[in-house]
Nucleic acid binder design. Structure first.
Lengths: 300, 300
DNA sequence: GTATATTGATGCCTTCTAGTTATCACCGAT
DNA sequence: ATCGGTGATAACTAGAAGGCATCAATATAC
């Protein structure tokens, strides 16, 4: 089949008009050209598609079948082209998004919900992972956007501050510090702490330790857990208290309570991070939407 | 999109090799020709499909999408061509078959069963109708093959004798004639008859009347029914007896019985009839199979 | 660091496909 | 018999597609 798509189009028009001259006019060519094109098409297909004599033209049964086939070919082609353009423009395709505990407990679900409406033809893949892991995945191309605890340092990465979390204290409801009206970090110096495990929570824990040292104590960390759910669980067990981001304070366990930390102005910044070395139109479109969304939600 | 299928094929090969020279060799063209073809394709599609620099070629995301689209286009085209050839050869398509009571009660189901295995891609439409009706439908093109009581007289029709039925008598089990050992038509002269209605059973009834007159009586027809089931039912009711084709003797009603008619050598011929003015490859293939099938089943 | 090999892109020329014009053969209607 | 319509055919022409030679950029070898 060396025949071009042009001939298929000619055949479609001819099948609809059943008149060579008329079809040729609509196609913007002359009748002999159409005659020859159809002959060549029939040679290629290997069977007669039209029965023609000097007074009428009609489709053979094979021609009817081939006509339906042509429509499928044409629509497949249209689909391929328009889909490719959409993919190039970021309106269709795949997007793999990484996120942390803090992001998924905070603003991320609102944004994702908004994104799914804005880009309905994009298939989203969400992967929970520690910030460090997400960084590696960004480099490997396994992740298009990471929502991770910043700052990101790599030259290949661009980022956008997405969420700013205050520090809060998580306490068992019966804990003595829960009764203090205006709670400072200093009030907590004497109590045992539960924190995230040192390997994956490296950056966060270092930040917390700096805060403690700034007010003159080193916390007594008696337990560590791999994720926020584990930390909250341990606090609920009464094994200690913890300092976490305010987004995690939404977890509704009746055995625990949350308190603002006065005197601590630091924020934990969750950033949207992406790898500028990979070209990914859907990701770029997503970043655009993210910027617009942040302006919108700030305005609210 | 004025681009030919050739370019899609070039793109597929290039996408698989990711190397212009190598792909060009496999395609039997030179590298510059391929370079230009791909550029023109990208212009047509409206977006870049391949990221290329001096050391490597790789598909863009849009290119990956378009590649999948190309495969769909190509397989749609292959399908269209091969399906058209099958239709032209009679291996695929539609076949509308008309049949009479006698045909469907006789050999037709065996043949149809065989046909469905031989031509699995043909969709069969079966329509029961009187012979006269089938003739008209053949002329209108509403029927591809009729299995009807012959002979057919039209010049446009070709036919093949399909089934030869002896005449049999249908009697209520308690009927006095049921006790006669060797039954002749003459034995039935005194009894009331149930026959097919005069409009649709015209040819058959005329045949029957000739048989009766040959042995010197005119039957007393007291009831008529539109179809064989009705006739058999009326006989079961005891309203009369009937003379029918032996194929109808397969109906297993316990209240009736069947007897050979001695001395009657005539046969009712059921023919396969088709309209030679329409070209219908599936029908032609079916006739071929029918001829072969008749030789086979005669041999058994 | 230079030389060499390999990559895809470009310019010019050739080839062949596809289109145009002119004409034919055939049929139905007037 | 003529006229108006059909599709097919032949000869010619224009434009797309391919080939050849070459370029620019990069990677590899020594």
């Amino acid at each position: 089949m060396q025949t071009g798509l042009r001939r298929l189009h000619y055949f479609q028009q001819l099948a609809s008009d059943l008149n060579f001259r008329q079809a040729a006019v609509k196609l913007g060519i002359t009748q002999p050209a159409l005659s020859r094109a159809i002959n060549l098409l029939e040679d290629d297909v290997g069977t007669r598609l039209l029965e023609r004599d000097n007074r009428e033209v009609r489709l053979t049964l094979a021609g009817e079948s081939f006509l339906r086939g042509c429509e499928r070919v044409m629509s497949a082609l249209d689909g391929a082209v328009s889909q490719a353009c959409k993919v190039a423009d970021g309106q269709a395709g795949q997007l793999t998004v990484g996120y942390t505990d803090t992001a998924i407990s905070g603003l991320l679900p609102d944004f994702i919900r908004c994104l799914r409406i804005a880009l309905p033809e994009v298939t989203l893949h969400l992967k929970q992972a520690y910030s460090q892991q997400q960084k590696e995945w960004l480099d490997d191309g396994k992740l298009d956007i990471a929502f991770m605890t910043g700052p990101s340092e790599s030259d290949n990465h661009a980022s956008l501050d997405f969420q700013h979390d205050r520090f809060i204290v998580i306490l068992p409801v019966e804990h003595p510090a829960a009764k203090i009206r205006s709670l400072n970090l200093e009030h907590l110096a004497e109590y045992p702490f539960v924190m995230g495990d040192p390997i994956h929570w490296q950056v966060y824990n270092a930040h917390f330790l700096r805060l403690c040292q700034a007010v003159g104590f080193t916390p007594d960390i008696v337990q560590s857990a791999p994720d926020s759910r584990g930390i909250v669980g341990m606090v609920a067990c009464g094994m200690g208290i913890s300092v976490q981001t305010e987004s995690l304070g939404k977890q509704g366990d009746p055995r625990i309570t949350f308190r603002r930390l006065n005197g601590v102005t630091d924020r934990v910044v969750t950033q949207a991070v992406w790898n500028t070395r990979f070209s990914q139109p859907v990701r770029d479109k997503t970043i655009q939407h993210l910027k617009a969304w942040m302006v919108d939600s700030d305005a609210v």
